[in-house]
């Protein structure tokens, strides 16, 4: 059994966006803080720190989930994908490109989380209905868009030609 004292900083190593990285964390350090302030991956945003708003959603071991409700020490050895890991070079993913085309983001603060959820969601359900898309999005709060253009961007990517 691994045991860490409250004030002990331990090394946490994980694969983030295809690279082995490491940083140090006390047990209480939120994964969201670890990604941002230890690993300097500021693309993941923090909106509520109590698991409701969805801004901090990242993909951990293939699943979209809240990074504010996970502690960095729990993630030693995990494989994580963040918004920085979506585009390849200057080439946006089709989803990112559709968000631009449809004006699916305004302030862009919630966007990283929504992209991570949607990327995982479409991998499991490539041809969702609009109701399924809205159900998936209900785990995110966006205060700018009213969600309309987000839904149309996702439907466009899933069903093409939209």
């Amino acid at each position: 059994m691994i045991r860490v004292k409250p004030d002990e900083r331990v090394r946490v190593s994980l694969v983030v966006n295809g690279r082995w990285l490491f940083g140090h964390a006390e047990p209480r350090m939120l994964l969201s803080d670890f990604l941002r302030h230890e690993l300097k991956l500021f693309g993941t945003h923090v909106g509520c720190e109590h698991g409701v708003c969805g801004a901090c959603t990242v993909e951990i071991d293939g699943r979209a989930t809240r990074s504010c409700l996970r502690y960095a020490v729990q993630c030693d050895g995990a494989t994580i994908r963040t918004v920085e890991g979506l585009a390849v070079g200057d080439t946006l993913t089709p989803l990112q490109a559709a968000f631009n085309r449809h004006h699916a983001l305004q302030c862009g603060f919630c966007t990283a989380g929504i992209l991570m959820s949607t990327t995982a969601f479409l991998a499991e359900n490539p041809k969702p209905t609009e109701a399924e898309v809205r159900d998936m999005l209900s785990g995110h709060i966006c205060r700018c868009t009213g969600y309309e253009q987000i839904v149309s961007a996702i439907m466009d990517v899933a069903h093409g030609g939209g």
């Binding site: 059994m1 691994i2 045991r3 860490v4 004292k5 409250p6 004030d7 006390e26 047990p27 209480r28 939120l30 803080d33 720190e49 109590h50 502690y71 020490v73 729990q74």
Partner: peptide, 16 residues
């Protein structure tokens, strides 16, 4: 909004 300092134990078995 950060937790109090807590220790961490990761069990590898139910017995642990």
């Amino acid at each position: 909004m950060k937790p109090v300092a807590f220790g961490y134990a990761r069990a590898e078995t139910v017995e642990e």
